[in-house]
Simulated scan of single mutants.
Amino acid sequence: MTKKLLFIVVGVLLLPLNAAWAETDMQIQEKALKSRELNKLGAMDHSGHAGSGEAAGKYRGVFYGYLPCKEENCNGIKMTLSLNPKNNYLLVIQPAKPQNRESFEKGKYEWSEATGTVLLTSNKEAPQRRLAIKDEGTLLYLNNGGKPVPGDQDRYLLQRSDKANNREMHIH
């Protein structure tokens, strides 16, 4: 009995030492601002974690877009598409409306320069998604039939973060 009690007491005392310390939004914003300033001054060296090849840059990355929304009380849909190594993807969809709920989709992707498309195949039973390749830093979201959505095509673009300069990929 005393061994169990000693084990519990030691466990309780060590518990605070294993706590994960997350940075606050303010701390992350401060780091991002410092990083931008250093980058503007040319004081950052990115050669240590640059891509290993030309093709790796084309096929991987995080693409952001703000697409139109047809639902009532919805101002748009924020989409974040991460194309990862081994042809895995993560798609995060967040409608800009009251009581919004993020949805996540994981699966495999195929990047075909021959057809000029990226095909997303979900791990769940969901329809495949297609995006047209405008260039290595820009994708155009297509409808279910693989055709451009009617209307202004610029409203359906997803920009790779390092090409659009709209997000920090990493912070030093």
Score class of each variant (00 low, 15 high):
87 N>L: 12
101 R>I: 05
17 L>E: 08
11 G>R: 00
40 K>Y: 06
165 N>M: 05
8 I>K: 07
128 Q>E: 13
28 I>K: 11
146 G>W: 07
121 T>I: 04
40 K>E: 10
98 P>V: 07
12 V>W: 04
128 Q>D: 08
1 M>L: 09
149 V>C: 08
152 D>H: 11
4 K>G: 15
116 G>N: 05
113 E>F: 07
7 F>Q: 05
125 E>P: 03
21 W>R: 15
84 N>S: 14
13 L>T: 03
13 L>N: 01
29 Q>C: 01
138 T>D: 02
9 V>S: 09
72 E>A: 15
4 K>V: 13
106 K>H: 06
52 S>P: 02
97 K>Q: 00
73 N>Y: 13
124 K>V: 07
52 S>G: 14
32 A>F: 02
69 C>S: 10
45 D>E: 12
47 S>A: 14
24 T>V: 03
7 F>P: 04
69 C>Q: 06
50 A>H: 07
18 N>S: 15
159 Q>A: 03
149 V>R: 00
21 W>H: 13
119 L>W: 04
166 N>C: 06
134 K>P: 09
135 D>T: 04
153 Q>G: 04
124 K>P: 08
171 I>L: 12
148 P>V: 11
81 L>N: 01
49 H>G: 06
6 L>D: 07
147 K>F: 11
139 L>T: 00
132 A>C: 00
80 T>W: 11
96 A>K: 08
99 Q>N: 15
14 L>H: 02
172 H>R: 09
157 L>S: 00
134 K>Q: 11
153 Q>N: 08
115 T>P: 03
78 K>V: 14
45 D>S: 10
145 G>E: 15
32 A>W: 07
29 Q>Y: 06
138 T>V: 10
169 M>C: 13
117 T>Y: 08
22 A>R: 01
79 M>N: 05
74 C>H: 07
156 Y>M: 09
73 N>V: 15
60 R>C: 10
39 N>P: 01
148 P>H: 06
27 Q>L: 03
171 I>Q: 08
93 I>G: 04
101 R>T: 02
153 Q>I: 11
166 N>K: 03
145 G>P: 13
131 L>P: 01
127 P>T: 10
170 H>M: 10
12 V>K: 02
116 G>S: 03
75 N>K: 13
110 E>S: 08
23 E>S: 11
172 H>F: 15
20 A>Y: 09
46 H>G: 10
167 R>H: 12
62 V>I: 09
75 N>R: 11
138 T>L: 06
16 P>D: 00
164 A>M: 02
160 R>D: 00
26 M>K: 09
33 L>N: 11
77 I>M: 02
66 Y>C: 03
135 D>R: 01
93 I>A: 11
122 S>K: 01
23 E>W: 13
94 Q>A: 02
54 E>K: 14
65 G>H: 00
100 N>Y: 08
1 M>Q: 13
153 Q>E: 15
71 E>Y: 10
119 L>G: 03
160 R>V: 01
30 E>Y: 05
148 P>T: 15
22 A>S: 13
18 N>C: 10
